[in-house]
Computed example of a mutant assay.
Amino acid sequence: MIRQNSYTIDRNLLDYKLILGPEFIEFLTSLGLEHHWIDSGAGRARAMIDYVQDDFFSPQARVTALDSNTPEPHYLAELEKKFSSPGFRYLSGQRIENRHLDEVGCADLITDVYGPLQYSSTMDQVLERYATLLKPEGEIWTVQPVITFIYDRQNKEIRFQDWLKYVQGLTVHSVLSPHSGARELVLLRNEESIVIPKLALQSIYSGSPPLRKFTLLDS
C-alpha cells in the first residue's frame, strides 16, 4: 500500500528480511522478554504484527511501532483489540525527533526501513534521537539513503557512510543485500556518549524517497 505522499506503509516482516538480509531475522531470534524493539516509520506496523504472531520468535521482545502519521481510527481499534498486551504498542501522530525517552523507552533494537532517515529534513536529529533511545550495545538496522547528498563547507560531497564515520560512539557495519540491492547498515552503540555531526538542510524535493541536500556544519 502506498500513502498519498508516495511512501510504502505496509511492509511486512518478509520485506524487512529481503531489505535488511537474513542476518536481521537471526538478530530478531536472539531477542527475548527482557529486550525492546522499536520500529521507526512503521506505517501500519505489519512487520511487528508478523513478529508477535509468529511462534518461531519465542520468547519475544517487547515491541513499539512509531509513525508520524496516524492510521485510520478503525485500524487503530483493530490493533488495540488484537494486541491488548503491554508487549505491543503503537505510537503515532508525532515525529521521532520530538519523542522523549520516558515516553518510548530504551531499545535494544531500532529499525528504520525507508523511514525517517530517508525522509526527514532533520536527518541528524533523527539519528541523535535514535542514539538517545539506544541501550549500550544496542543496534540500529537501516538502509543507506539513496538520493541524499551531504557537502562540507568547501562544497565537497561526503558520502552518507563517510558522514557516519564522524559520529562518536557508533560503529557502522555495511552489507549489500543480495535480494533488494539496498545497502544494509547496522549501527552498534559502543560508547556511553554519542555525538552526531550537525547538518543544515540545503534543499529537499518531493519523491519516494525525497531528494535531499545537506551541509555538514561540524566534524
Rank of each mutant, 00 (worst) to 15 (best):
R3H: 13
S6D: 03
Y7G: 07
D10R: 09
R11A: 14
L13V: 10
D15A: 14
D15C: 10
Y16E: 02
Y16P: 01
L18I: 12
I19T: 15
L20R: 01
G21I: 11
P22L: 11
E23S: 14
I25M: 14
E26K: 15
S30H: 06
L31M: 15
L31N: 01
E34D: 12
H36Q: 13
I38N: 07
D39C: 09
D39R: 03
G41V: 06
A42K: 03
R46I: 02
Y51I: 01
V52K: 00
Q53T: 10
D54G: 07
F56E: 15
F57P: 02
F57S: 06
A61H: 05
R62H: 12
R62F: 04
V63N: 05
T70W: 04
P71K: 02
E72Y: 10
E72H: 14
L76A: 07
F83P: 06
S84T: 07
G87D: 02
G87V: 02
F88Y: 14
F88L: 09
Y90S: 13
Q94N: 09
E97K: 03
E97G: 05
L101C: 05
L101H: 03
E103K: 01
E103L: 03
D108G: 11
I110R: 10
V113F: 12
G115P: 09
P116L: 11
Y119A: 10
Y119N: 11
T122Y: 00
T122V: 10
Q125N: 04
Q125M: 08
L127N: 03
A131V: 09
T132C: 09
L133C: 06
P136K: 04
E137Q: 15
G138H: 04
W141D: 03
Q144I: 00
P145D: 06
V146M: 11
I147H: 13
T148C: 11
I150K: 05
I150G: 00
Q154D: 09
N155F: 10
E157L: 11
R159Q: 13
F160C: 13
D162L: 05
W163N: 02
K165R: 14
K165D: 05
V167I: 11
G169F: 02
G169E: 00
L170R: 01
T171Y: 07
S177C: 06
S180I: 10
G181T: 12
L185H: 03
E191W: 02
E192M: 02
E192K: 12
V195P: 00
V195K: 14
I196H: 04
P197E: 07
L216F: 11
L217M: 15
D218E: 15
